[in-house]
């Protein structure tokens, strides 16, 4: 009996060895150590590079899914900023009357609303991105950081379309874009990175405490009025202007407005503040995400 067992197992071993020629393991040199320590920065970046495939698939999914089974479909991307602009333009053109310089008020507002709609949308979705995908992260491992990154990347397409709509509106008002329009991607990148930083801080927290996204819902409303979107910053008293400059979205929206319309000089001071705060937020976000990653998987 023993002999039989031994011989059958050795036969199995032999056949396995023969067949294993066909299968060539590629990744056996890649050693992974799993212990209680959170991933280091180098590992996180390496992981992220390996997960670029997932990232692109997730972004495509988000874009495809967004307007499925809606009658107007893709047109919503255009309608949403238009509608908001229409509302603001009517209210503030005829009731409050902000001086917007030489720029028509509708264009002035649109320069702020289009990036803001991206920011609000990306932030709202980004903050719940871990929680929304809890069934995936508890069943399979992949660098979870791709979830918030993917969720805030997909609405960039809407932003792009919004910018096109803005340019069309400008041609209707016969305003010609200037050379500084070329700097627009820089400002959008800055906004993207700031969004990423905030989302990396709060998405793991939202997985642990559901209060976060409720707070963000009304925080975003207040935040919008603390950003010079519907009014020019210089109508405020100097003290308030300095205070609002701490809000990175102030510098970013001003920068975008300068690059699109360009009838006012660029506010370098606010832009530098916005860049500095973005970098700080990103560092805190990356750190917080890595620290909380071990926790939220067990508790989401």
């Amino acid at each position: 009996m023993v002999l039989l067992l031994v011989s059958s197992s050795s036969i199995r071993a032999i056949t396995r060895r023969q067949i294993s020629h066909r299968y060539s393991p590629r990744n056996t040199n890649r050693k992974t150590v799993i212990d209680q320590k959170p991933l280091g920065l180098k590992e996180t970046i390496g992981d992220l590079w390996r997960a670029r495939e997932i990232l692109s698939k997730l972004v495509k999914k988000d874009i495809r899914v967004q307007y499925k089974q809606t009658a107007l479909g893709f047109l919503w991307v255009l309608f949403r900023p238009m509608m908001t602009v229409l509302v603001f333009a009517t209210i503030f053109r005829y009731i409050v009357r902000f001086p917007a310089g030489e720029t028509p008020y509708a264009i002035f507002v649109m320069c702020g609303i289009v990036p803001w709609l991206y920011f609000a949308e990306a932030l709202r979705k980004g903050v719940t991105s871990i929680y929304d995908n809890s069934h995936i992260i508890t069943c399979i491992y992949f660098p979870r950081i791709v979830l918030p990154i993917g969720v805030i990347t997909a609405p960039l397409l809407d932003l792009m379309i919004g910018v096109c709509a803005l340019l069309i509106m400008m041609s209707i008002y016969s305003i010609e874009p200037k050379a500084q329009l070329l700097s627009l991607p820089l400002f959008i990148s800055l906004m993207y990175l700031f969004t990423l930083g905030v989302v990396l801080c709060f998405a793991p927290l939202q997985a642990l405490y559901r209060d976060i996204n409720i707070i963000f819902t009304f925080l975003l409303t207040i935040w919008m009025y603390l950003t010079p979107i519907i009014y020019p910053l210089d109508i405020l008293p100097q003290k308030l202007q300095t205070l609002l400059a701490i809000n990175p979205m102030t510098g970013i929206v001003q920068g975008i407005r300068w690059s699109v319309v360009g009838d006012n000089p660029l506010d370098w001071k606010n832009l530098i503040v916005a860049t500095a705060i973005t970098i700080i937020t990103l560092i805190i976000g990356l750190y917080a995400f890595r620290r909380l990653e071990t926790k939220f998987v067990d508790q989401v």
């Binding site: 990744n27 056996t28 890649r30 992974t32 150590v33 799993i34 069943c139 399979i140 491992y141």
Partner: peptide, 23 residues
């Protein structure tokens, strides 16, 4: 083993990629 959750103590060393069919 599939890296979903981290151990509280001890360590695990893997050589290669894990494909997990937990679900």
């Amino acid at each position: 083993i599939s890296r979903i959750t981290k151990p509280t103590k001890g360590r695990l060393t893997l050589r290669g990629r894990v494909a997990s069919l937990l679900e």
